[in-house]
Every structure is written in C-alpha cells, then in structure tokens.
Design a protein around this nucleic acid. Structure first.
Lengths: 207, 207
DNA sequence: AACCTGAATTGAACTGAACTCAGGTTGATC
DNA sequence: GATCAACCTGAGTTCAGTTCAATTCAGGTT
C-alpha cells in the first residue's frame, strides 16, 4: 500500500545525487526562492539546462528533497521504536531519534518544514504531482506513527486519555519547530535541545 | 527603544488597507509564491502598477503583513498577561490569548509562520529592509515575553528550574505549530485546540 | 472660475530567472 | 567500431515582477 516511488536507477555517470546534494546546500543555506536554479548547476559543474534531464523543474527537485527527508524520518522513527514495549520509553526513543541527525539532514529538515505548504495544493506537472502526493502520504504516515504511539500509551494506562490526534500533532509540532531556529554553528548543541524536548514531550503526554 | 514604524498616514482615498486585506486573503489561501501580484491588484480594482505607489514590491507587502501580525501578537500577549501575578495563570492567559483570533488573523498567522525565514537574510531595498528589521525586533520581543514569563515562574518557585530560553521557544513553537494545519473550516474548533495546548504548555513547564 | 500641488493611476516597455527546443556529445555494450 | 540511450549544451521563449514617463484626480489657493 505504501507505494514508494521508484528511484530512477542511477546510470553510472548520473549527476542526480550530486544535484540533490548541491540543492540541499543551496536551498538550506540561502533559501529555495533566493537561490538561482543556475547556481545549483554551477556548483555541480554542468550547464543549467542539464538539470532538466534529471528534474522537471526547480520545484520538482525541492519536492524530491522533501520526500526523501520524510522517508528518512519515517524509517528512523520505525527503527527507533520497534520492539520498545514501554510507551514512555518508546516516546523518548522516538524523540532522540528525531534529533539524531547529520548537519546535512538538519538542512533537509529546514527545507522540508519551510515548504510544507507546497504539499497542500495540487501541482500541474506529472512528476511534481507524483512527488507531492507521495510526500503527503508520508506526512500522514509520520503523523500516524506519533498518534499510534500515544494511543498505545493511553490504552496501556501509561498516559492519561486525551485527544491523541491533536496531542500527537502538538508533540510533532514541538519537535520540528526546532528546525526553524537551530543552526549547527549556533550556541546550543543539539544534544541539549534533544534532552530538553524529550523531557517536555514526556511531561506533555503524561500526568 | 521599540522604534515602531510610522504607518504612512492614510490619505482619504488611499487603498493601502484594501491592498493589505486582499493580499492577506490571497497569500493566506493560495500562498505567497503562488499568487500573482496582479491578482491582488485585480481584487482591489486597480492596475498592477498602482500597487507600487503603496508597496515597493510584492515582498515588501508580505513583510508589512508579517510585521503587523507580530505587533498584534505582542500587544495581545501584553494585554492578556499584565496584572496576572500567578505565573501558571499568566501562562494560561497567554495561550488563550494566542488562540483568540479572527479568521483573518488565522490567515495572517499562517502567512507569518510560513515565511519566517525571510527575516534572516538582509534585503536589498530600503523599505523592505526596514520592515524586516522591525519584524525581527518584534520576534525577539515576543520570544522574550515568553521567556520572561517562564523565568518569573521559575524564580517564584511555580515552575522547576530549566533552560528558560530553550523551553520558551519550545512553548512558542508548540503554540504556533498549529497555524500550519488549522483551518477555520476544518473539523477541529479552535477552542478545542486552545484548551489542549493550554494544558500541554502548563504540563511542559511544570513538574 | 482659473490655477496649483501632490497623491493616485496607467500603458508600454524592461528584466531576469525559469524553462523549452533542436540538436550535439559521450561512453557502455554488442 | 557501430549503435543507442543517457547525458549535455547554446540559443531562444515565456512570464511575473518591476520601472518609467506621462496622465488623471481631488482638494486647496488666489
């Protein structure tokens, strides 16, 4: 049912990965609107028009980055929580997993959450729309992950009963709000953020 | 010290307010990038170029909307909390105030938080940069409002001691994360959201 | 009433970045 | 070493945002 998009298998001299990496850097540092599509081409070392061999548009590239990051987040959540039966421990593990990211992934998170609104409206071109739909599915999956975690905790009596959906999006909102301001070069280390948010989440859902 | 920008005093036939209102509708519903500047002009009933009599650019208009919304938020916070000496009650009042908004203000919130990243980098044109700087100042003011509330609660023994700045941006992040998904036409009434988040915030900062 | 001023407006032209097109190059494979 | 798809390019198109010179309009002055 989770129809994962087939990644175009990379021909040996494909620059797709290099383009994605360069785009993540540019979009993450400078912002999507502010970075010229041609700058990404330059950084990869190809002409601007070559980009269109790999991506239908600048936006198609952005949506691809977003989908990949969502896939990663979802996988990480699953990996971190599976087999942890105590709900509170599962919640803690999920939060820690959310902040166990590389600098590159921080950028991807920033890009993702700065352009969530793109996922609302339908896109005109085929491949853009495919990525958008897939990304939306993943968003819902991630939301369900968190909601289910809370539902399980509530039914097991570990968390008091509340609107799990609403509380879930609250927890998720709290966690991702960090990507708005966090900078690897900033004064606050991510480990500190992780600890504080972990505690906050636990208190939020507990008594 | 808080150098509030002097609103250009409205000549009797100024369309500035009408443009702002139309822009909030368009930017809020369709998204800033997706709405054509000329559409805003149409909705107001003037030619596109007339817009430039009031705003230096499409972005200048956006930044103005953002600043106005920040000013409103700040005022509302102050009004809701001043004179409330019990920290928990002040926190509750602040959260309730944050969600005591009209449908128009929901749109403005959405616009504001979808384009926070604009406030990071400097702008080229004068008036855009003026709005940006002012908006940034207001963001810091709002953050300080929440941090101070927590600091006061901690020093009074109402909240356990924690990194107030980090926790403050957490609380704020949780509160504004709602504007990402909330729709007045949606299934969840804002009052319900307000209650759940109010409780969550209190638990987050308390024991 | 004739005149003046500045705010408000406009149509036509400009700009620049995203994108298209019609072909050319490369290199893995047979 | 011929083939063919993957890969790439320069020249040109498009289109939304923007500029500009010129015009209208409303309210006040003489």
């Amino acid at each position: 049912m989770a129809t994962r998009i087939v990644e175009p298998e990379a021909g040996p001299r494909s620059k797709r990965a290099a383009i994605l990496a360069a785009a993540v850097d540019c979009f993450g540092e400078t912002g999507f609107e502010a970075t010229k599509w041609s700058t990404v081409a330059e950084r990869v070392g190809i002409g601007q028009t070559a980009l269109y061999h790999y991506f239908e548009s600048k936006t198609h590239c952005l949506l691809t980055i977003m989908r990949l990051e969502l896939q990663r987040s979802h996988d990480k959540f699953t990996e971190a929580t599976e087999g942890v039966e105590d709900p509170t421990e599962a919640l803690r593990a999920a939060v820690r997993a959310a902040y166990d990211v590389s600098d590159q992934e921080v950028l991807q998170m920033r890009i993702l959450h700065n352009h969530m609104d793109l996922l609302s409206g339908t896109r005109k071109s085929k491949r853009e729309e495919a990525e958008r739909v897939e990304a939306r599915k993943l968003v819902q999956l991630v939301e369900r992950n968190w909601t289910n975690l809370l539902v399980r905790g509530m039914s097991m009596g570990a968390f008091p009963l509340r609107d799990a959906q609403l509380l879930g999006s609250g927890v998720l909102g709290l966690i991702v709000s960090v990507w708005r301001w966090y900078r690897p070069s900033g004064p606050t280390p991510l480990s500190e953020v992780s600890e504080l948010i972990e505690g906050a989440c636990v208190r939020m859902v507990a008594t």
